[in-house]
Design a protein around this nucleic acid. Sequence first.
DNA 1: CCCTTGACTTTGGGATCCCAAAAACTCTCA
DNA 2: TGAGAGTTTTTGGGATCCCAAAGTCAAGGG
Lengths: 252, 252
Amino acid sequence: MNSIDAELAARIRDDIIHGVYAEGERLSEAQLCDAFKVSRTPVRLALRLLEREGIVRRGEGRGYTIQSPSISDILQAVQVRGHLESLAARLLAQSPNRQAALPAMARAIETIGDLVNLERLDAPVARQMQSANEVFHTSILDNCGNDYVGFTCQQISHLPMLAAGSMVFDRGILDSPERWEAGVFRLRLGNAQHQVIYEAIEQGDAVRAEGMMREHSHTMIKYIQTFENRDRSLTVSDLVSYSAAGSDRVQS
Amino acid sequence: MNSIDAELAARIRDDIIHGVYAEGERLSEAQLCDAFKVSRTPVRLALRLLEREGIVRRGEGRGYTIQSPSISDILQAVQVRGHLESLAARLLAQSPNRQAALPAMARAIETIGDLVNLERLDAPVARQMQSANEVFHTSILDNCGNDYVGFTCQQISHLPMLAAGSMVFDRGILDSPERWEAGVFRLRLGNAQHQVIYEAIEQGDAVRAEGMMREHSHTMIKYIQTFENRDRSLTVSDLVSYSAAGSDRVQS
DNA sequence: CCCTTGACTTTGGGATCCCAAAAACTCTCA
DNA sequence: TGAGAGTTTTTGGGATCCCAAAGTCAAGGG
Protein backbone atom coordinates (compact mmCIF):
# COMPACT_ATOMS: atom_id res chain seq x y z
CA MET A 1 0.00 0.00 0.00
CA ASN A 2 2.10 2.84 -1.18
CA SER A 3 0.26 5.67 -2.85
CA ILE A 4 -3.05 6.16 -4.52
CA ASP A 5 -1.97 4.85 -7.90
CA ALA A 6 -0.91 1.45 -6.59
CA GLU A 7 -4.20 1.05 -4.78
CA LEU A 8 -6.03 2.32 -7.83
CA ALA A 9 -4.23 -0.22 -10.00
CA ALA A 10 -5.25 -2.94 -7.58
CA ARG A 11 -8.89 -1.90 -7.71
CA ILE A 12 -8.98 -1.66 -11.49
CA ARG A 13 -7.17 -4.98 -11.73
CA ASP A 14 -9.68 -6.60 -9.41
CA ASP A 15 -12.50 -5.18 -11.51
CA ILE A 16 -10.98 -6.56 -14.65
CA ILE A 17 -10.35 -9.97 -13.12
CA HIS A 18 -13.82 -10.11 -11.67
CA GLY A 19 -15.24 -9.42 -15.07
CA VAL A 20 -16.66 -5.95 -14.52
CA TYR A 21 -15.37 -4.91 -17.91
CA ALA A 22 -15.86 -6.98 -21.03
CA GLU A 23 -12.94 -8.46 -22.91
CA GLY A 24 -11.71 -5.99 -25.50
CA GLU A 25 -13.68 -3.13 -23.99
CA ARG A 26 -12.17 0.30 -24.39
CA LEU A 27 -11.83 2.24 -21.22
CA SER A 28 -10.93 5.87 -21.04
CA GLU A 29 -9.04 7.80 -18.43
CA ALA A 30 -11.89 10.22 -17.86
CA GLN A 31 -14.28 7.36 -17.22
CA LEU A 32 -11.99 5.93 -14.54
CA CYS A 33 -11.45 9.36 -13.02
CA ASP A 34 -15.17 9.72 -12.69
CA ALA A 35 -15.61 6.22 -11.30
CA PHE A 36 -12.92 6.49 -8.65
CA LYS A 37 -13.21 10.21 -7.97
CA VAL A 38 -9.56 10.95 -8.53
CA SER A 39 -7.58 13.03 -10.92
CA ARG A 40 -6.17 11.80 -14.16
CA THR A 41 -2.59 11.68 -12.94
CA PRO A 42 -2.92 8.64 -10.66
CA VAL A 43 -5.22 7.01 -13.19
CA ARG A 44 -2.55 7.26 -15.83
CA LEU A 45 0.08 5.89 -13.50
CA ALA A 46 -2.20 3.00 -12.63
CA LEU A 47 -2.93 2.30 -16.29
CA ARG A 48 0.76 2.25 -17.06
CA LEU A 49 1.24 -0.32 -14.31
CA LEU A 50 -1.60 -2.44 -15.64
CA GLU A 51 -0.25 -2.09 -19.13
CA ARG A 52 3.05 -3.51 -17.93
CA GLU A 53 1.20 -6.33 -16.24
CA GLY A 54 -0.36 -7.18 -19.55
CA ILE A 55 -4.03 -6.96 -18.55
CA VAL A 56 -4.53 -3.64 -20.32
CA ARG A 57 -3.24 -2.82 -23.75
CA ARG A 58 -2.58 0.69 -24.97
CA GLY A 59 -3.61 0.86 -28.59
CA GLU A 60 -1.82 2.64 -31.35
CA GLY A 61 -4.29 5.45 -31.44
CA ARG A 62 -6.03 6.41 -28.29
CA GLY A 63 -7.78 4.36 -25.71
CA TYR A 64 -6.88 1.39 -23.60
CA THR A 65 -8.37 -2.01 -24.27
CA ILE A 66 -9.05 -4.65 -21.67
CA GLN A 67 -7.09 -7.87 -21.92
CA SER A 68 -8.82 -9.80 -19.18
CA PRO A 69 -6.97 -13.02 -18.45
CA SER A 70 -8.63 -16.27 -19.42
CA ILE A 71 -8.39 -19.54 -17.54
CA SER A 72 -5.88 -20.60 -20.15
CA ASP A 73 -3.77 -17.59 -19.20
CA ILE A 74 -3.95 -18.57 -15.55
CA LEU A 75 -2.90 -22.11 -16.35
CA GLN A 76 0.02 -20.87 -18.39
CA ALA A 77 1.10 -18.51 -15.66
CA VAL A 78 0.83 -21.25 -13.05
CA GLN A 79 3.06 -23.37 -15.23
CA VAL A 80 5.63 -20.60 -15.47
CA ARG A 81 5.49 -19.98 -11.78
CA GLY A 82 5.83 -23.66 -11.01
CA HIS A 83 8.83 -23.90 -13.28
CA LEU A 84 10.46 -20.97 -11.54
CA GLU A 85 9.75 -22.50 -8.16
CA SER A 86 11.30 -25.75 -9.28
CA LEU A 87 14.44 -23.80 -10.13
CA ALA A 88 14.36 -22.27 -6.66
CA ALA A 89 13.96 -25.69 -5.07
CA ARG A 90 16.92 -27.04 -7.01
CA LEU A 91 19.10 -24.06 -6.15
CA LEU A 92 18.15 -24.24 -2.50
CA ALA A 93 18.95 -27.95 -2.38
CA GLN A 94 22.36 -27.16 -3.87
CA SER A 95 22.96 -24.25 -1.55
CA PRO A 96 25.45 -24.83 1.28
CA ASN A 97 23.46 -22.70 3.70
CA ARG A 98 20.09 -24.26 2.99
CA GLN A 99 19.73 -25.02 6.69
CA ALA A 100 18.47 -21.51 7.23
CA ALA A 101 15.27 -22.19 5.33
CA LEU A 102 14.47 -25.57 6.84
CA PRO A 103 12.93 -24.62 10.22
CA ALA A 104 10.31 -22.32 8.73
CA MET A 105 9.46 -24.90 6.10
CA ALA A 106 9.12 -27.63 8.71
CA ARG A 107 6.84 -25.45 10.78
CA ALA A 108 4.70 -24.68 7.75
CA ILE A 109 4.34 -28.35 6.91
CA GLU A 110 3.40 -29.13 10.49
CA THR A 111 0.86 -26.32 10.58
CA ILE A 112 -0.81 -27.43 7.38
CA GLY A 113 -0.87 -31.02 8.63
CA ASP A 114 -2.54 -29.99 11.87
CA LEU A 115 -5.09 -27.88 10.03
CA VAL A 116 -5.99 -30.71 7.66
CA ASN A 117 -6.45 -33.03 10.63
CA LEU A 118 -8.98 -30.61 12.07
CA GLU A 119 -11.42 -32.05 9.50
CA ARG A 120 -12.90 -28.58 9.23
CA LEU A 121 -12.41 -25.93 6.61
CA ASP A 122 -13.94 -22.59 7.41
CA ALA A 123 -12.54 -19.19 6.54
CA PRO A 124 -10.07 -18.85 9.44
CA VAL A 125 -8.70 -22.35 8.87
CA ALA A 126 -8.32 -21.68 5.15
CA ARG A 127 -6.60 -18.42 5.95
CA GLN A 128 -4.12 -20.09 8.27
CA MET A 129 -3.49 -22.77 5.69
CA GLN A 130 -2.89 -20.20 3.02
CA SER A 131 -0.53 -18.34 5.31
CA ALA A 132 1.47 -21.47 6.12
CA ASN A 133 1.58 -22.40 2.45
CA GLU A 134 2.90 -18.95 1.66
CA VAL A 135 5.61 -19.35 4.29
CA PHE A 136 6.67 -22.65 2.76
CA HIS A 137 6.90 -21.35 -0.77
CA THR A 138 8.47 -17.99 -0.02
CA SER A 139 11.04 -19.66 2.21
CA ILE A 140 12.28 -21.54 -0.80
CA LEU A 141 12.19 -18.53 -3.10
CA ASP A 142 13.85 -16.23 -0.60
CA ASN A 143 16.67 -18.57 0.37
CA CYS A 144 17.53 -20.14 -2.95
CA GLY A 145 20.34 -17.65 -3.48
CA ASN A 146 18.95 -16.26 -6.72
CA ASP A 147 16.98 -13.15 -5.94
CA TYR A 148 15.67 -12.90 -9.47
CA VAL A 149 13.60 -16.04 -9.14
CA GLY A 150 11.49 -14.52 -6.41
CA PHE A 151 11.47 -11.17 -8.16
CA THR A 152 10.25 -12.70 -11.38
CA CYS A 153 7.58 -14.64 -9.53
CA GLN A 154 6.37 -11.41 -7.99
CA GLN A 155 6.12 -9.89 -11.45
CA ILE A 156 3.32 -12.28 -12.32
CA SER A 157 1.84 -12.65 -8.85
CA HIS A 158 -0.90 -10.12 -9.46
CA LEU A 159 -2.92 -12.68 -11.36
CA PRO A 160 -5.41 -14.70 -9.38
CA MET A 161 -4.05 -18.02 -8.09
CA LEU A 162 -0.55 -16.69 -8.50
CA ALA A 163 0.06 -14.76 -5.34
CA ALA A 164 2.73 -16.36 -3.21
CA GLY A 165 1.39 -19.53 -1.68
CA SER A 166 -2.15 -19.06 -2.89
CA MET A 167 -4.28 -22.16 -2.69
CA VAL A 168 -7.43 -22.95 -4.58
CA PHE A 169 -10.14 -24.37 -2.41
CA ASP A 170 -13.10 -26.26 -3.65
CA ARG A 171 -16.07 -24.10 -2.84
CA GLY A 172 -18.33 -27.11 -2.84
CA ILE A 173 -16.08 -28.92 -0.41
CA LEU A 174 -18.79 -29.09 2.20
CA ASP A 175 -21.61 -30.05 -0.12
CA SER A 176 -21.11 -33.77 -0.37
CA PRO A 177 -19.03 -36.30 1.56
CA GLU A 178 -17.11 -37.47 -1.47
CA ARG A 179 -16.20 -33.90 -2.41
CA TRP A 180 -14.98 -33.41 1.11
CA GLU A 181 -12.96 -36.58 0.94
CA ALA A 182 -11.41 -35.54 -2.35
CA GLY A 183 -10.62 -32.10 -1.00
CA VAL A 184 -8.94 -33.45 2.12
CA PHE A 185 -7.01 -35.94 0.02
CA ARG A 186 -5.79 -33.15 -2.21
CA LEU A 187 -4.60 -31.13 0.76
CA ARG A 188 -2.86 -34.14 2.26
CA LEU A 189 -1.24 -34.93 -1.05
CA GLY A 190 -0.02 -31.36 -1.40
CA ASN A 191 1.48 -31.43 2.06
CA ALA A 192 3.08 -34.80 1.39
CA GLN A 193 4.72 -33.18 -1.60
CA HIS A 194 5.86 -30.38 0.71
CA GLN A 195 7.38 -33.01 2.94
CA VAL A 196 9.23 -34.64 0.06
CA ILE A 197 10.53 -31.28 -1.11
CA TYR A 198 11.67 -30.54 2.41
CA GLU A 199 13.53 -33.83 2.72
CA ALA A 200 15.11 -33.48 -0.70
CA ILE A 201 16.36 -30.01 0.15
CA GLU A 202 17.59 -31.15 3.54
CA GLN A 203 19.53 -33.98 1.93
CA GLY A 204 20.82 -31.81 -0.87
CA ASP A 205 19.01 -33.89 -3.48
CA ALA A 206 18.58 -31.15 -6.05
CA VAL A 207 17.07 -33.34 -8.75
CA ARG A 208 14.42 -34.70 -6.44
CA ALA A 209 13.61 -31.28 -5.04
CA GLU A 210 13.20 -29.82 -8.51
CA GLY A 211 11.15 -32.72 -9.78
CA MET A 212 8.82 -32.79 -6.82
CA MET A 213 8.27 -29.05 -6.96
CA ARG A 214 7.41 -29.43 -10.61
CA GLU A 215 4.93 -32.14 -9.71
CA HIS A 216 3.56 -29.95 -6.93
CA SER A 217 2.65 -27.18 -9.34
CA HIS A 218 1.39 -29.71 -11.85
CA THR A 219 -1.08 -30.89 -9.21
CA MET A 220 -2.50 -27.38 -9.05
CA ILE A 221 -2.75 -27.24 -12.84
CA LYS A 222 -4.65 -30.51 -12.91
CA TYR A 223 -6.95 -29.25 -10.17
CA ILE A 224 -7.83 -26.09 -12.10
CA GLN A 225 -8.38 -28.20 -15.20
CA THR A 226 -10.94 -30.31 -13.38
CA PHE A 227 -12.99 -27.16 -12.90
CA GLU A 228 -12.51 -26.28 -16.51
CA ASN A 229 -13.63 -29.73 -17.62
CA ARG A 230 -16.62 -29.70 -15.31
CA ASP A 231 -17.89 -26.45 -16.80
CA ARG A 232 -16.51 -25.25 -20.09
CA SER A 233 -18.02 -21.81 -19.73
CA LEU A 234 -16.11 -21.19 -16.51
CA THR A 235 -14.50 -17.78 -16.30
CA VAL A 236 -11.62 -16.49 -14.25
CA SER A 237 -14.13 -14.71 -12.10
CA ASP A 238 -15.62 -18.06 -11.11
CA LEU A 239 -12.14 -19.36 -10.42
CA VAL A 240 -11.44 -16.46 -8.12
CA SER A 241 -14.56 -17.07 -6.14
CA TYR A 242 -13.47 -20.67 -5.82
CA SER A 243 -10.45 -19.62 -3.87
CA ALA A 244 -10.74 -19.32 -0.15
CA ALA A 245 -12.67 -16.44 1.31
CA GLY A 246 -9.68 -15.92 3.53
CA SER A 247 -7.59 -14.97 0.56
CA ASP A 248 -9.62 -11.87 -0.12
CA ARG A 249 -7.65 -8.80 0.60
CA VAL A 250 -8.92 -6.55 3.34
CA GLN A 251 -11.01 -3.82 1.85
CA SER A 252 -10.29 -0.32 3.00
CA MET B 1 9.33 3.48 -28.91
CA ASN B 2 5.98 4.63 -27.79
CA SER B 3 5.96 7.96 -26.00
CA ILE B 4 8.45 10.14 -24.25
CA ASP B 5 8.33 8.32 -20.95
CA ALA B 6 9.33 4.96 -22.43
CA GLU B 7 12.25 6.54 -24.18
CA LEU B 8 13.10 8.47 -21.05
CA ALA B 9 13.05 5.27 -19.04
CA ALA B 10 15.39 3.68 -21.56
CA ARG B 11 17.82 6.56 -21.32
CA ILE B 12 17.82 6.65 -17.55
CA ARG B 13 18.18 2.88 -17.48
CA ASP B 14 21.13 3.04 -19.81
CA ASP B 15 22.70 5.71 -17.64
CA ILE B 16 22.25 3.55 -14.57
CA ILE B 17 23.61 0.44 -16.27
CA HIS B 18 26.55 2.33 -17.68
CA GLY B 19 27.41 3.55 -14.23
CA VAL B 20 26.63 7.23 -14.60
CA TYR B 21 25.03 7.22 -11.19
CA ALA B 22 26.63 5.65 -8.18
CA GLU B 23 25.08 2.72 -6.40
CA GLY B 24 22.70 3.95 -3.72
CA GLU B 25 22.72 7.49 -5.07
CA ARG B 26 19.56 9.47 -4.56
CA LEU B 27 18.15 11.05 -7.65
CA SER B 28 15.36 13.57 -7.66
CA GLU B 29 12.68 14.22 -10.19
CA ALA B 30 13.67 17.84 -10.62
CA GLN B 31 17.24 16.85 -11.35
CA LEU B 32 16.11 14.50 -14.12
CA CYS B 33 13.74 17.12 -15.49
CA ASP B 34 16.62 19.50 -15.76
CA ALA B 35 18.92 16.91 -17.30
CA PHE B 36 16.49 15.75 -19.97
CA LYS B 37 14.66 19.03 -20.48
CA VAL B 38 11.23 17.57 -19.94
CA SER B 39 8.46 18.08 -17.48
CA ARG B 40 8.01 16.12 -14.32
CA THR B 41 5.08 14.08 -15.59
CA PRO B 42 7.01 11.85 -18.00
CA VAL B 43 9.88 11.66 -15.52
CA ARG B 44 7.55 10.27 -12.91
CA LEU B 45 6.10 7.76 -15.34
CA ALA B 46 9.60 6.67 -16.30
CA LEU B 47 10.64 6.34 -12.67
CA ARG B 48 7.61 4.20 -11.97
CA LEU B 49 8.63 1.93 -14.82
CA LEU B 50 12.18 1.70 -13.54
CA GLU B 51 10.90 1.08 -10.05
CA ARG B 52 8.96 -1.89 -11.36
CA GLU B 53 12.03 -3.13 -13.14
CA GLY B 54 13.86 -3.08 -9.85
CA ILE B 55 16.74 -0.83 -10.81
CA VAL B 56 15.35 2.12 -8.89
CA ARG B 57 13.87 1.94 -5.45
CA ARG B 58 11.40 4.43 -4.07
CA GLY B 59 12.21 5.01 -0.43
CA GLU B 60 9.76 5.37 2.38
CA GLY B 61 10.25 9.08 2.61
CA ARG B 62 11.13 10.96 -0.50
CA GLY B 63 13.71 10.34 -3.13
CA TYR B 64 14.55 7.46 -5.39
CA THR B 65 17.68 5.43 -4.83
CA ILE B 66 19.70 3.75 -7.54
CA GLN B 67 19.88 -0.01 -7.46
CA SER B 68 22.35 -0.55 -10.24
CA PRO B 69 22.57 -4.23 -11.12
CA SER B 70 25.76 -6.07 -10.30
CA ILE B 71 27.33 -8.82 -12.34
CA SER B 72 25.89 -11.22 -9.82
CA ASP B 73 22.44 -9.84 -10.65
CA ILE B 74 23.07 -10.39 -14.33
CA LEU B 75 24.18 -13.95 -13.71
CA GLN B 76 21.09 -14.65 -11.65
CA ALA B 77 18.84 -13.15 -14.30
CA VAL B 78 20.54 -15.15 -17.03
CA GLN B 79 19.92 -18.25 -14.97
CA VAL B 80 16.24 -17.40 -14.64
CA ARG B 81 15.96 -16.62 -18.31
CA GLY B 82 17.69 -19.83 -19.25
CA HIS B 83 15.39 -21.81 -17.03
CA LEU B 84 12.36 -20.20 -18.66
CA GLU B 85 13.75 -20.91 -22.10
CA SER B 86 14.29 -24.53 -21.16
CA LEU B 87 10.61 -24.69 -20.26
CA ALA B 88 9.78 -23.21 -23.65
CA ALA B 89 11.99 -25.76 -25.39
CA ARG B 90 10.30 -28.61 -23.57
CA LEU B 91 6.83 -27.31 -24.32
CA LEU B 92 7.65 -26.75 -27.96
CA ALA B 93 9.05 -30.29 -28.25
CA GLN B 94 5.81 -31.59 -26.79
CA SER B 95 3.65 -29.39 -28.97
CA PRO B 96 1.87 -31.11 -31.85
CA ASN B 97 2.31 -28.12 -34.14
CA ARG B 98 5.98 -27.61 -33.46
CA GLN B 99 6.66 -27.86 -37.18
CA ALA B 100 5.73 -24.20 -37.55
CA ALA B 101 8.79 -23.09 -35.62
CA LEU B 102 11.32 -25.37 -37.29
CA PRO B 103 12.02 -23.57 -40.59
CA ALA B 104 12.95 -20.27 -38.96
CA MET B 105 15.11 -22.09 -36.44
CA ALA B 106 16.89 -24.03 -39.18
CA ARG B 107 17.54 -20.85 -41.11
CA ALA B 108 18.93 -19.17 -38.01
CA ILE B 109 21.28 -22.07 -37.36
CA GLU B 110 22.46 -22.02 -40.95
CA THR B 111 23.00 -18.26 -40.87
CA ILE B 112 25.04 -18.43 -37.70
CA GLY B 113 27.06 -21.30 -39.11
CA ASP B 114 27.82 -19.38 -42.27
CA LEU B 115 28.82 -16.31 -40.30
CA VAL B 116 31.17 -18.27 -38.07
CA ASN B 117 32.79 -19.80 -41.15
CA LEU B 118 33.54 -16.33 -42.44
CA GLU B 119 36.41 -16.30 -39.92
CA ARG B 120 35.71 -12.63 -39.46
CA LEU B 121 33.91 -10.82 -36.71
CA ASP B 122 33.32 -7.14 -37.30
CA ALA B 123 30.29 -5.13 -36.30
CA PRO B 124 27.99 -6.07 -39.18
CA VAL B 125 28.78 -9.77 -38.82
CA ALA B 126 28.16 -9.58 -35.09
CA ARG B 127 24.92 -7.78 -35.75
CA GLN B 128 23.74 -10.44 -38.18
CA MET B 129 24.72 -13.15 -35.76
CA GLN B 130 22.85 -11.46 -32.96
CA SER B 131 19.82 -11.12 -35.20
CA ALA B 132 19.86 -14.79 -36.19
CA ASN B 133 20.35 -15.79 -32.58
CA GLU B 134 17.35 -13.70 -31.65
CA VAL B 135 15.27 -15.41 -34.33
CA PHE B 136 16.25 -18.81 -32.97
CA HIS B 137 15.39 -18.01 -29.37
CA THR B 138 12.21 -16.07 -29.99
CA SER B 139 10.95 -18.78 -32.34
CA ILE B 140 11.02 -21.17 -29.44
CA LEU B 141 9.47 -18.74 -27.00
CA ASP B 142 6.75 -17.62 -29.41
CA ASN B 143 5.70 -21.08 -30.53
CA CYS B 144 5.91 -23.02 -27.30
CA GLY B 145 2.21 -22.55 -26.70
CA ASN B 146 2.65 -20.79 -23.37
CA ASP B 147 2.54 -17.05 -23.97
CA TYR B 148 3.55 -16.31 -20.41
CA VAL B 149 7.01 -17.74 -20.85
CA GLY B 150 7.88 -15.17 -23.48
CA PHE B 151 6.04 -12.48 -21.58
CA THR B 152 7.97 -13.22 -18.40
CA CYS B 153 11.24 -13.25 -20.32
CA GLN B 154 10.42 -9.82 -21.68
CA GLN B 155 9.83 -8.59 -18.16
CA ILE B 156 13.50 -9.06 -17.36
CA SER B 157 14.86 -8.37 -20.83
CA HIS B 158 15.76 -4.77 -20.05
CA LEU B 159 18.88 -5.87 -18.25
CA PRO B 160 22.05 -6.07 -20.29
CA MET B 161 22.75 -9.52 -21.75
CA LEU B 162 19.10 -10.38 -21.31
CA ALA B 163 17.47 -8.99 -24.39
CA ALA B 164 16.13 -11.72 -26.62
CA GLY B 165 18.99 -13.54 -28.29
CA SER B 166 21.68 -11.23 -27.02
CA MET B 167 25.17 -12.61 -27.32
CA VAL B 168 28.26 -11.61 -25.44
CA PHE B 169 31.28 -11.17 -27.64
CA ASP B 170 34.83 -11.15 -26.48
CA ARG B 171 36.07 -7.66 -27.16
CA GLY B 172 39.61 -8.91 -27.29
CA ILE B 173 38.71 -11.58 -29.80
CA LEU B 174 41.03 -10.09 -32.41
CA ASP B 175 43.95 -9.42 -30.10
CA SER B 176 45.59 -12.81 -30.04
CA PRO B 177 45.21 -15.98 -32.11
CA GLU B 178 44.32 -18.17 -29.16
CA ARG B 179 41.61 -15.75 -28.05
CA TRP B 180 40.25 -15.83 -31.55
CA GLU B 181 40.32 -19.60 -31.55
CA ALA B 182 38.52 -19.75 -28.25
CA GLY B 183 35.93 -17.26 -29.44
CA VAL B 184 35.22 -19.18 -32.63
CA PHE B 185 35.02 -22.41 -30.68
CA ARG B 186 32.50 -20.88 -28.34
CA LEU B 187 30.34 -19.71 -31.22
CA ARG B 188 30.54 -23.11 -32.88
CA LEU B 189 29.68 -24.80 -29.62
CA GLY B 190 26.70 -22.53 -29.14
CA ASN B 191 25.43 -23.26 -32.61
CA ALA B 192 25.98 -26.97 -32.13
CA GLN B 193 23.76 -26.66 -29.08
CA HIS B 194 21.23 -24.87 -31.27
CA GLN B 195 21.40 -27.81 -33.65
CA VAL B 196 20.81 -30.32 -30.87
CA ILE B 197 17.89 -28.30 -29.56
CA TYR B 198 16.47 -28.16 -33.06
CA GLU B 199 16.74 -31.91 -33.56
CA ALA B 200 15.30 -32.65 -30.15
CA ILE B 201 12.31 -30.42 -30.84
CA GLU B 202 11.88 -31.89 -34.31
CA GLN B 203 11.85 -35.40 -32.88
CA GLY B 204 9.63 -34.45 -29.99
CA ASP B 205 12.32 -35.29 -27.45
CA ALA B 206 11.19 -32.89 -24.74
CA VAL B 207 13.69 -34.02 -22.13
CA ARG B 208 16.63 -33.58 -24.48
CA ALA B 209 15.39 -30.21 -25.69
CA GLU B 210 14.96 -28.93 -22.15
CA GLY B 211 18.29 -30.27 -20.99
CA MET B 212 20.23 -28.88 -23.91
CA MET B 213 18.61 -25.49 -23.59
CA ARG B 214 19.59 -25.50 -19.95
CA GLU B 215 23.14 -26.32 -20.94
CA HIS B 216 23.03 -23.61 -23.59
CA SER B 217 22.28 -20.92 -21.05
CA HIS B 218 24.77 -22.44 -18.65
CA THR B 219 27.43 -21.93 -21.30
CA MET B 220 26.67 -18.22 -21.26
CA ILE B 221 26.86 -18.13 -17.48
CA LYS B 222 30.26 -19.79 -17.54
CA TYR B 223 31.43 -17.34 -20.16
CA ILE B 224 30.43 -14.33 -18.09
CA GLN B 225 32.11 -15.92 -15.10
CA THR B 226 35.39 -16.15 -16.97
CA PHE B 227 35.33 -12.37 -17.27
CA GLU B 228 34.50 -12.09 -13.62
CA ASN B 229 37.36 -14.36 -12.66
CA ARG B 230 39.79 -12.55 -14.92
CA ASP B 231 39.07 -9.23 -13.26
CA ARG B 232 37.30 -9.13 -9.94
CA SER B 233 36.63 -5.43 -10.14
CA LEU B 234 34.67 -5.85 -13.35
CA THR B 235 31.42 -3.91 -13.43
CA VAL B 236 28.27 -4.34 -15.46
CA SER B 237 29.35 -1.37 -17.50
CA ASP B 238 32.43 -3.29 -18.61
CA LEU B 239 30.25 -6.27 -19.41
CA VAL B 240 28.01 -4.14 -21.58
CA SER B 241 30.92 -2.82 -23.54
CA TYR B 242 32.02 -6.41 -24.05
CA SER B 243 28.87 -7.14 -25.98
CA ALA B 244 28.81 -6.52 -29.67
CA ALA B 245 28.75 -3.00 -30.97
CA GLY B 246 25.87 -4.15 -33.11
CA SER B 247 23.73 -4.59 -30.07
CA ASP B 248 23.80 -0.92 -29.26
CA ARG B 249 20.46 0.64 -29.90
CA VAL B 250 20.31 3.39 -32.44
CA GLN B 251 20.59 6.73 -30.76
CA SER B 252 18.14 9.39 -31.84
C1' DC C 1 -26.94 7.06 -53.25
C1' DC C 2 -22.18 6.73 -51.98
C1' DC C 3 -17.76 8.62 -51.29
C1' DT C 4 -14.82 12.23 -49.84
C1' DT C 5 -13.46 16.02 -47.25
C1' DG C 6 -13.59 19.31 -43.69
C1' DA C 7 -15.09 20.78 -39.12
C1' DC C 8 -16.05 19.29 -34.47
C1' DT C 9 -15.44 16.46 -30.51
C1' DT C 10 -13.25 13.30 -27.76
C1' DT C 11 -9.17 11.75 -25.51
C1' DG C 12 -4.55 10.99 -24.17
C1' DG C 13 0.15 13.21 -23.37
C1' DG C 14 2.86 16.88 -21.33
C1' DA C 15 3.41 21.15 -18.50
C1' DT C 16 2.39 23.69 -14.63
C1' DC C 17 0.48 24.71 -10.16
C1' DC C 18 -0.55 23.65 -5.41
C1' DC C 19 0.02 21.21 -1.25
C1' DA C 20 1.67 18.20 2.27
C1' DA C 21 5.38 15.83 4.19
C1' DA C 22 10.10 15.17 5.01
C1' DA C 23 14.75 16.74 5.39
C1' DA C 24 17.81 20.33 6.72
C1' DC C 25 19.09 24.35 9.00
C1' DT C 26 19.13 27.61 12.65
C1' DC C 27 18.19 29.49 16.98
C1' DT C 28 17.78 29.04 21.74
C1' DC C 29 18.43 27.15 26.16
C1' DA C 30 20.77 24.24 29.36
C1' DT D 1 29.17 23.68 23.28
C1' DG D 2 25.61 20.33 22.40
C1' DA D 3 20.88 18.98 22.07
C1' DG D 4 16.20 19.92 21.06
C1' DA D 5 12.58 22.44 18.97
C1' DG D 6 10.84 25.45 15.54
C1' DT D 7 11.27 27.17 10.93
C1' DT D 8 12.61 27.00 6.23
C1' DT D 9 13.48 24.68 2.10
C1' DT D 10 13.34 20.88 -0.76
C1' DT D 11 10.74 17.35 -2.99
C1' DG D 12 7.29 14.17 -4.39
C1' DG D 13 2.14 13.41 -5.12
C1' DG D 14 -2.22 15.00 -6.98
C1' DA D 15 -5.07 18.29 -9.66
C1' DT D 16 -5.74 21.13 -13.39
C1' DC D 17 -4.79 23.24 -17.79
C1' DC D 18 -3.40 23.17 -22.58
C1' DC D 19 -2.50 21.04 -26.82
C1' DA D 20 -2.12 17.80 -30.47
C1' DA D 21 -3.77 13.84 -32.60
C1' DA D 22 -7.27 10.70 -33.65
C1' DG D 23 -12.03 9.54 -34.16
C1' DT D 24 -16.65 11.08 -35.64
C1' DC D 25 -20.13 13.26 -37.94
C1' DA D 26 -22.13 15.85 -41.43
C1' DA D 27 -22.43 18.19 -45.69
C1' DG D 28 -21.45 18.60 -50.40
C1' DG D 29 -20.08 16.82 -54.78
C1' DG D 30 -19.85 13.14 -58.12
